[in-house]
Design a protein around this nucleic acid. Sequence first.
DNA 1: CCTTTAGTCTACTAATTCGATAGAGTATTA
DNA 2: TAATACTCTATCGAATTAGTAGACTAAAGG
Lengths: 137, 137
Amino acid sequence: MLSKKTKYGLKALTYMAKKGDGKTPILIAEIAEQENISKKFLEMILLQLKNTGFLGSKKGKGGGYYLLKEPKDITVAALMRVLEGPIAMLPCVSLNFYEKCDDCKTEEECSLNRVMVEVRDNTLRVLENKTLADLTN
Amino acid sequence: MLSKKTKYGLKALTYMAKKGDGKTPILIAEIAEQENISKKFLEMILLQLKNTGFLGSKKGKGGGYYLLKEPKDITVAALMRVLEGPIAMLPCVSLNFYEKCDDCKTEEECSLNRVMVEVRDNTLRVLENKTLADLTN
DNA sequence: CCTTTAGTCTACTAATTCGATAGAGTATTA
DNA sequence: TAATACTCTATCGAATTAGTAGACTAAAGG
């Protein structure tokens, strides 16, 4: 299951993609209210998305956050990796967060490895091809 | 990501499917050693799988656990639902653990709902058709 | 019948994560 | 220079995760 952080992050950026023109900043407070998200919690999430290159920000009056790329160029998979971490069900089948399992001798012998690779590929086929632009419909 | 509990449970039952004849009990200790799982932790997992109808048990000398069904009749999805809970990424798209999201007005309006349904369907297509018999290869 | 074996059950723990909040600080605008 | 709005650090309680300890019960077998 996705954490609320990931869910809120995706919903917030979808809101921004739907509403914004790409350069006019949008208030945290507005997003929080519209999407029913705790404002303080959302602050943290958007800040992280800024620090990872998805958002730009402007302080003071008329400030807020804005998307740095076009919605169609931001995949759900990329956002999930930043907010949630690995998409795969096991570390040993993760493409971006690979880690060896310490209870398996080899990955060839691991009974779960192959199935989880298959799950991962099916999941990624969806998430890599879905962008913020698709979520706004 | 799957919890270790789920991972261990799947590996343990795969071991049993590979090794057992369906009625001769297999020792917890043997599975734990062969699959590098903490014995005490595995006790708890197998007990749960007994209480949910997957395993039978026998106490005393010559005792242990045995599968109640044939490996080909136990899907990975069924095991994961018992050990891990929901397979879907959001409660509102879970077939077996459905829950309404309190931050969304309606599910039609929710930008994430449709994508997550698609992910779920793709994941289930794999997991529902994969049985313990497939894992033993 | 008594010892050994092996699953059952309850309880507890340490560490981590999750979701959220508080409040001071800083940049920007008017 | 006052108001605005993002930035940063710190903290919090609750829940979850992974694992351990130890007593209890059922069964086999000599």
